[in-house]
Structures are given as structure tokens and as C-alpha cells.
Design a protein around this nucleic acid. Structure first.
Lengths: 224, 224
DNA sequence: CCAAAAGTGTTATGTTTACACCCATGT
DNA sequence: ACATGGGTGTAAACATAACACTTTTGG
């Protein structure tokens, strides 16, 4: 390759994270408010540019932490967004990532030197975002629906024990549909995705509910 | 973003194509021989660097045509290879693509200003390739197995009519397994992937075989 | 005993697998 | 008539989908 070909110059790599949580049956995504141009004042997906000495996954995690304080997230790369004019300053290729976290465990910082706020938004009412982030987020929501059916991506939502009723509600929220309770339980128990802890939890006036944990041995079989 | 941050400089985007064909039951991939450093004299997957004014898919097609003469291929992006030291000259992120072509229809040019030869290699006997291309190719072979089961990627192998026996042999070659003939036919006919043309072809001493074409309406349901 | 949610089982339907024989042709 | 490969059907196993009643607890 002719390294000095001007057509090779000035391409940057954007790492863009769609971080989801489920909060009382509402699926939410983490957005930050930009303080700099371009798109100053717009809400945006947290992310930034790849360094030339790091892996893309590491860069995505670094940017997420720098912009929101969130760390210890498993990120899953899912697509490239490459429209030539998707960034006004220079050519930027976006590599999009998805992560899921437990809102209660995440300590989100709202202000950095590039952001004035960060907050969780119901995915059903997303404002106009910076760049092509509305498109990226829509793709992420679709991909999330696939991921919960083929991977254990939701385990980060339940770092501790959980009941199948809680997990059921999360599946219904994300897939935006209702799932038969009995069949859901059967599939979950028959898949090797969750493990019965033989412990129960008591809520007032209700039959004690069995507690489960996620199986650490990942299986890639489709659950539904 | 601080555009002048030195950590953002000198990242290039590599577009790498694994182009497959099936030749009498043998799955082959198209390789080119490099005439320049680095990896001078090594066989390599055809590809090159993204221009800053083109989409990655267009860049992959352009490079494929420049290096091999092959055009009119549908390419499917499948993975990013980002090891920091995967390229000796500067940081290069590889975006890997897969395509399938009919060997008979492809007019391959063997010499360009950067290549001294191009040829089809049986995927069961691949030499040591330039860069991390052995790893990229292995990933492409795995991905090809998935793609033939979920998409109509093989239609480019059969631009005209074909018999189910021919298609069957290609599936067995790529998946490197045997598939029950009756069940294969049932699945193919029941999926909306192929359409009966109501025409037949005669071979000496054999019952005439029905001819099929690929359905242009793509379906994404898994075939097997 | 009542409310609230947890827990469970069966039947029907559809899908996948395994498997063997007849058919149309050219020689 | 026979050799060659083309074409088909059925039964068993398995997976999925639909559906309703009983259990445990707190008040």
C-alpha cells in the first residue's frame, strides 16, 4: 500500500456504546449530553475515538468509563456504521457496541469535561440524538432482542440471585411482547442458562419464590 | 474530540475478502501472491485499504476488483480483526468480508502491479498467508457455513438453473458433512429459497432432473 | 378465608430425523 | 434388462405452543 495516498488520510474510528438497563419493566438506554461542537447540547450515545494502541473493545470500554464512569461491562460488537458524511468534521467509521448493566450497581457520573449530563432514557421516548446515533440505537435495540435469546447477556442485570418471575418480566419488557409464563419457566430451566440455588425468597403474602443464578458456562443455543 | 491527539493518528482500515467457490465438490478460496513488502512473496487474501470517500463495502469490492479482476460479487461483512500488531507498518484494523462466486463465470486476472499471481486454493490445504490472514480465513470458513444455512449466499454459485443434486453436493462440501438426500430436498423445497422452474435436464442414462432457480425474495429463516 | 403471586402438567401441533423403494433414461 | 442417478413417503422422536388449576404465604 502507498501509505501516503491522500485517500487513506483522516479516517477515524468511532466507538459507540448502547448501554441498556431494565428498570421496573422499562427498558432504558444510557445517554450523555454533549458540551462541545459538533452537536453541542445534543444527547448522544457514550463513546469516542479509538487510540492506535488499543483493541476496539478496550477502546469502547475506556470511552464508556471516561464519559459515564461506568466500568466492568461486557460489550458486544454488533455492526459498523460507515456513511461517508455521518460525522461533519472528518470521515469517521463507527463500530457499535451493546452492553447491559444493573442500574443499581452502576455509579454514573453526570459531568465530564465533554459532557454536562448523563441519564437513562426509556427507549420508547428517545430524543433526537447527535450524529447518526438514532439509527445506531435502533439497530442496537434489535440486536439486544436477538442477544437475550442466544446469549447470557442479561446476567449482568442479575449479578446476584433472581426469581424466574423477575427474569420473565425483563424478557417481556425487552422483547416488547408477552411470553407464556409456564413455557418461559420450562425453557429457562431446561436450557443450561440458569441454575436453581435451592434457596427461596419471601415476599409478604406470597408463596416463597425459588432463587436462581446464571450459569457461568455460556451456551450459544437459542433459548426461544 | 481533539482531532490532533497523536493517539488518533495513523490508523488505517484494511478490507479483506475471502472469496469462495465450489469446484467439483472442493471448496476453494481465491488467493493472490504479493509482490511488495511486507510479506513479499506470500499468498494473501485479496483486499486493501479503505478510501476516505467510500463505504467499506464499496472499498472491499473495489480492492477485490483491482487485485483479482473479480467484480459483481455480493460481499457480506462478518468480523473485525484488530490486534494492535497485526500489520507491521502501521496500525491497521481489518474488516473481513465473505463472497461466493461461480468459478466458471469469474475472469480472474493473475497479475496486477501489486500481485504476481492469483489462484484458487482448496481450503483444506492453505499455505501460510500474509498478515493474520490464516486466522481471518478460518473465521470466514466458519461464517460461510452459517451463511449458507441462513441466507441465499449460494445463489451466486448458480446464476442459472440447477438441480437439487448439484446444490446438495455443494452443501455437503461446504459443511464437510453428509446430509440425507430426501430431507435436504424437502427442506429446500419447503423453504422459499428455491423455486421449481418446471423444466428438466437430461443426462445420459439417467432420469431427467428438475431444474430450480434461487428465489429472489430473500428469507432469513434458518434452513437447517 | 381471601388476595396475591408461585408453581406445575398435559395435550396438540409442528419440526426434524431416520430410513427404503420405485422411476425414467441410455446403452 | 440393467446400470445410473432422480425422485418420493412414512413413522418416530423431539420441540414448541396452548392452556388452568393448586400451593403457599400474610393479613
Amino acid at each position: 500500500m502507498r501509505v501516503n495516498n491522500p485517500l487513506y488520510k483522516n479516517i477515524g474510528i468511532h466507538l459507540v456504546n448502547s448501554i441498556f438497563t431494565v428498570d421496573n419493566g422499562v427498558v432504558k438506554v444510557l445517554l450523555i449530553k454533549r458540551t462541545n461542537e459538533p452537536y453541542k447540547g445534543y444527547w448522544a450515545l457514550p463513546g469516542g475515538c479509538l487510540y492506535n494502541n488499543e483493541l476496539v473493545l478496550d477502546g469502547a470500554k475506556r470511552e464508556l468509563k471516561e464519559k459515564t464512569g461506568v466500568s466492568n461491562v461486557e460489550l458486544s460488537m454488533y455492526k459498523i456504521f460507515d456513511r461517508v458524511d455521518r460525522s461533519p468534521l472528518k470521515r469517521m467509521i463507527a463500530i457499535a457496541f451493546i452492553g447491559v448493566i444493573d442500574k443499581k450497581k452502576a455509579s454514573i457520573i453526570s459531568q465530564t469535561n465533554k459532557t454536562s449530563a448523563s441519564d437513562w432514557f426509556d427507549i420508547k421516548s428517545i430524543p433526537e440524538l447527535a450524529y447518526d446515533y438514532n439509527e445506531i440505537l435502533n439497530g442496537a435495540i434489535d440486536r439486544l432482542k436477538e442477544l437475550i435469546q442466544t446469549t447470557d447477556i442479561l446476567k449482568s442485570l442479575f449479578p446476584e440471585v433472581f426469581t424466574l418471575a423477575e427474569l420473565h418480566q425483563v424478557y417481556e419488557s425487552i422483547l416488547n411482547t408477552s411470553i407464556d409464563r409456564r413455557n418461559f419457566r420450562k425453557k429457562m430451566v431446561n436450557s443450561n442458562l440458569v441454575i436453581d440455588t435451592n434457596k427461596t425468597v419471601n415476599y409478604k403474602g406470597r408463596k416463597p419464590a425459588k432463587l436462581y443464578i446464571f450459569n457461568n458456562k455460556v451456551n450459544n443455543k437459542s433459548i426461544f
